[in-house]
Design a protein around this nucleic acid. Sequence first.
DNA 1: CTGCATCCCGTCGGATACTG
DNA 2: CAGTATCCGACGGGATGCAG
Lengths: 136, 136
Amino acid sequence: MPRQTKAPPDPFLKSLDDIRAEGFSPDNCPIRDVMSHINDKWSVLILIALQDRPHRFGELRRALADISQRMLTQTLKGLQREGLLSRTVFPTTPPAVEYALTPLGLSLLPALGAVIRWAEANQATIHAARAAFDEA
Amino acid sequence: MPRQTKAPPDPFLKSLDDIRAEGFSPDNCPIRDVMSHINDKWSVLILIALQDRPHRFGELRRALADISQRMLTQTLKGLQREGLLSRTVFPTTPPAVEYALTPLGLSLLPALGAVIRWAEANQATIHAARAAFDEA
DNA sequence: CTGCATCCCGTCGGATACTG
DNA sequence: CAGTATCCGACGGGATGCAG
């Protein structure tokens, strides 16, 4: 695995210095502030599950397959707090609750898609890297 | 915050069903497999710091500003294991160690950039959503 | 300068049981 | 059906001290 040899490519990202120049501090950093709330075990999977239609609680639970109902409730509440999804209660008996992406949540999907496609495309390479590393 | 009303937009992402159809299982899921290793507190910030040039250990520590050296060592080791960065030791006295992105790590930056730009663009909206949620 | 070892505490997250 | 409450083990991550 060779190290980086040439000059940087295109400015994909602002440097940490640039981010600081815009008023960054360890506290007020957009990356930490926003990403730390969706970097948990289930948030991204829930957003994916809701991408094409709203789901009820039980539907989501079956879609995620191996999530505990404790973590489902908790993660949904977190995503709702961030404004990424909405929660609608239908006062029937028994009650039905529907979760749906907000426009804000929907707007996050393309960006997430870029990372997910990268993960899918490079999964094998990464497995090889892990094996090589663990051997040494 | 209105809920999603219309049909899904473009197919940004594969659905969970599609992912499963490709041989997905809770164990072998590219999203969980790959993302769970960079979803920690420091990995993304380290990748950003290394984007334009290699850094030595102390340089990185100063660049991150508020990372403990325990977590810096640990996170660097994890990223190296994933094949995202390389570690080069120069046997001088005192020893110097240089960390640099690998081509694989470099290839992740554009995808990360999409999420980061989204975070920067929507930080204010998210803060408003949190405030509204906490009030209720 | 770079890194490991230890201690310690807070949070994450699963299992289970109980309510409207 | 859609949660809430409790218990508890595992892990993340900071502080400090030691070593090559």
